[in-house]
Design a protein around this nucleic acid. Structure first.
Lengths: 242, 242
DNA sequence: TAGATTGTTAATCGATTAACAATC
DNA sequence: TAGATTGTTAATCGATTAACAATC
């Protein structure tokens, strides 16, 4: 290992030190879910093979992923489910509660506000905002719908860590700009737009239509391949050379 | 290039031939969207640099992605927006309409059924299904909600290419099994479960809570780094050796 | 012809995975 | 001690990107 800079040394065993690859970060929540499920089944110890099976990944990949967090397993035995669960939750930051604001209380925003899985682990809907709150119900899931114009006032009352954009595509960039200006550095975007944000702001995008298009591509491909198998058989007689 | 097998030769210029990397497939819908936006602005030709800028990717990556489809640009000039748009749409399979069935008409299923972006390009909500349709509104977005028990009857009336699962997590695997048994080979899963499906069935997953957890990880990391900058400065005096 | 931009090559980077030494 | 399983190394694979020859 090369010489550490003071910042790295200070990071030590607590969170914040090692760089965890993005691909690994994206899988940690899956491991967490699987561990929770195991714990609910009363299973207290599991091997990398078992856990990997539950998440449908290669067990070597799982062990490598976990190795970025530290050495939380026992050779010859496996992982203590509760302990590993806590370590992953700590690494992701789920030992605290993250307040979320949803912007755009249309069909989707409504569904998101009512989504129970939200509170389940580490997240809490802290505010609902809409450009035209008078067109919405007054409150959804017990949370009042406020005007997006009052963003700063709302954030002064209730701190918010993550902004969820559930507006039409046209409004999304403007909303993002205002969220960023208000100091929010994490955005989950459901609108089909590529948001431009300054460095230091994280954006994740969920895009229904992209997912459907990817499925359509593979579906078409399968249909095409089926057709071709027929053609290939028919052509086999005429075409001799490979 | 090595000798082609008959199936490859038959594929020729029509869809179905070349293997397109997954990472590229996932970006094609983004390019398509950007091209549509350019077309709406009345722009008829664009360079890889311009298109890449609109999608926020490296222009070399864009050109490499497009090269998997064929040679649809003109050196020294750029790409014809409408022509490239058509070629990508054809490659993805959006020159036809894909009928979609939504299973689980709760808050989310409701929002999905009403989602206008659905029809916009290549997709059409063909059926709505719920385990307890009597608890739902009779129809949503003009489409009747049918009992999931009648799956086979519904599919006999209306062909469906893609199944969307918007049920609670506990029900998702059972629904997937029945969809697969009914011959559906593409599934978009909104339930927080890893579905087990036979080979030859495509599953994509959209998981709100995973996305939030990834954001939380980075958010926490930023907060930690900020704290550490303070610590590092404080420690700088004591710590002399690197 | 001179300028512009594609399509492709080759270098680089990051992610996956098999294999195994370390160790419970 | 013998068996099991982790944590890590090193090989492999796929994706990204800079650079440039081909060519409009």
């Amino acid at each position: 290992m090369t010489a550490r800079k003071p910042a790295d040394a200070a990071a030590g065993t607590q969170s914040g030190g090692r760089e965890i690859p993005e691909a690994t970060v994206a899988r940690l929540p899956e491991y967490l879910r699987a561990l929770t499920s195991l714990a609910e089944q009363g299973i207290s110890v599991c091997s990398s093979e078992e856990l990997a099976g539950a998440v449908n990944v290669n067990s070597a990949k799982l062990r490598k992923d976990l190795s970025y967090l530290g050495s939380y397993g026992t050779r010859g035995v496996g992982y203590d489910v509760d302990y590993l669960r806590y370590q992953i939750a700590r690494e992701i930051g789920l030992t605290q509660d993250w307040p979320v604001a949803i912007v755009g209380i249309g069909n989707l925003g409504h569904a998101l506000a009512n989504y129970s899985g939200f509170g389940t682990r580490g997240f809490r809907v802290a505010a609902l905002l809409d450009a035209a709150p008078e067109r919405c119900e007054e409150s959804v899931a017990g949370i009042p719908v406020r005007s997006f114009d009052d963003l700063d006032a709302v954030l002064a009352e209730t701190p918010v860590a993550i902004g969820v954009i559930a507006t039409p595509a046209e409004a999304a960039q403007g909303v993002a700009d205002r969220l960023v200006a208000a100091g929010i550095t994490s955005i989950l975007n459901f609108a089909p737009t590529n948001l431009a944000v300054p460095a230091g702001v994280s954006v994740r995008k969920v895009d229904l239509s992209v997912e459907l298009q990817i499925l359509a591509y593979h579906e078409q491909r399968r249909a095409g391949a089926e057709e071709l198998r027929g053609t290939a058989i028919a052509a086999a007689g005429e075409e001799q050379s490979a």
